[in-house]
């Protein structure tokens, strides 16, 4: 395939292809079958693959996530869909204590080839309990791999990469991206897990981001470019492992850094990236690093408040100008 499709269709296409190719792959989660998926990703898959491989589960996040781990131990290649990251908190014991730990606890005997997909992020006026961005939080945990596809190509590639991985991989699909259109070429060799991608070359500031914030960053970079500030935009793609090499190389080129992260600031992935730059490239910096994160409040419902809480292109522009002044 080499065509323009939506992010949603790209994820669906990847799952469909994987299931056609490999009998061990199956999808399970809430409303993935008859409803077609909470975000309509699995629409039509039940009809093609039947209820034995597209499994509607009860609202039992912990049990069906744990069942994914068990099935992976049993030789399957399960894809567990947790409707949103917010509900994944109910499965946190299984994800952290079991999926992430088993290989190590068993002295290398039991790996867990499990893929967990979940929706993340705010922007749809869903309030405090349906708008979390906890991917950075999950990136804290050794044993997991954390992927944050931003583009249509990555939405497809990351399902494929995750299924080929012998260890648990969590994919965070941002709710605002599903209708985005982009080019998908299924013939290109995907950039591997742990590799960041420079989405825009620039010489003045290295802007590090991931997920839906990538597009706000690119919009801001365009605005800044008109004002003579040349931003290099890095899409992390993977929050664990982090691609230190690509980050440090870019820092050594621009000598200025900003991070855009839809997570809260305190204890965030943005904080981790800053710490690593501090450790590995401190003397490359010409100015203090800056970041634009989600304000540290539970997500409000009202549209204007929600938008004020989230990172936005204008905040990114302002931060970039501030960094350039120093």
């Amino acid at each position: 395939m080499n065509s323009t499709i939506t992010y949603r269709e790209a994820v669906r296409h990847a799952i469909k292809q994987a299931m056609e190719k490999d009998q061990r792959v199956f999808l399970m989660g809430e409303d993935v079958g008859h409803y077609g998926g909470g975000y309509a990703v699995s629409m039509g898959l039940l009809e093609q693959f039947g209820s034995e491989r597209i499994i509607d589960t009860p609202l039992s996040e912990s049990a069906f996530t744990g069942a994914g781990i068990g099935a992976a131990l049993g030789g399957m290649r399960p894809i567990v869909e947790i409707m949103t990251v917010n509900f994944s908190l109910l499965a946190l014991d299984q994800i952290m204590n079991n999926a992430a730990n088993l290989l190590h606890m068993s002295g290398g005997q039991f790996n867990v080839p499990l893929v967990i997909r979940m929706v993340t992020g705010g922007g749809k006026q869903l309030g405090a309990q349906h708008s979390h961005s906890l991917e950075g939080w999950y990136a804290h945990i050794p044993g997991l791999k954390i992927l944050t596809p931003a583009t249509v190509q990555d939405a497809y590639d990351m399902v494929t990469l995750a299924l080929a991985d012998p260890d648990p991989v969590l994919i965070f699909e941002h709710a605002m991206l599903y209708n985005n259109k982009g080019l998908l070429d299924t013939k290109v060799i995907p950039l591997s897990i742990g590799k960041a991608k420079i989405e825009r070359l620039g010489k003045d500031i290295t802007l590090i981001t991931y997920g839906a914030s990538l597009f706000k960053a690119l919009e801001a970079a365009q605005t800044l470019s008109d004002e003579g500030i040349d931003i290099e935009v890095i899409d992390l793609r993977s929050l664990r492992p982090l691609d230190d090499e690509t980050i440090m190389k870019s820092v050594a080129k621009t000598h200025r850094v900003m991070i855009v992260d839809e997570g809260w600031k305190s204890g965030s992935i943005s904080a981790e990236i800053m710490a690593r730059i501090n450790e590995q490239a401190f003397y490359e910096l010409d100015a203090p690093m800056g970041r634009v994160c989600t304000l540290e409040v539970p997500m409000p419902y009202a549209a204007h408040l929600e938008q004020a809480v989230l990172p936005q292109a204008d905040k990114i522009v302002a931060m970039a100008k501030k960094i350039m002044e120093k």
Partner: peptide, 30 residues
């Protein structure tokens, strides 16, 4: 843990093993 005897722990969070056992049984059924 022991792969040779299919001994999957040793799961020390109370009830933590049950969901995994469900998945193992599901894989056998599938």
């Amino acid at each position: 843990f022991d792969a040779a005897t299919r001994f999957y722990g040793g799961i020390a969070i109370v009830t933590g093993g049950l969901p995994m056992a469900i998945g193992m049984a599901l894989s056998d059924k599938m």
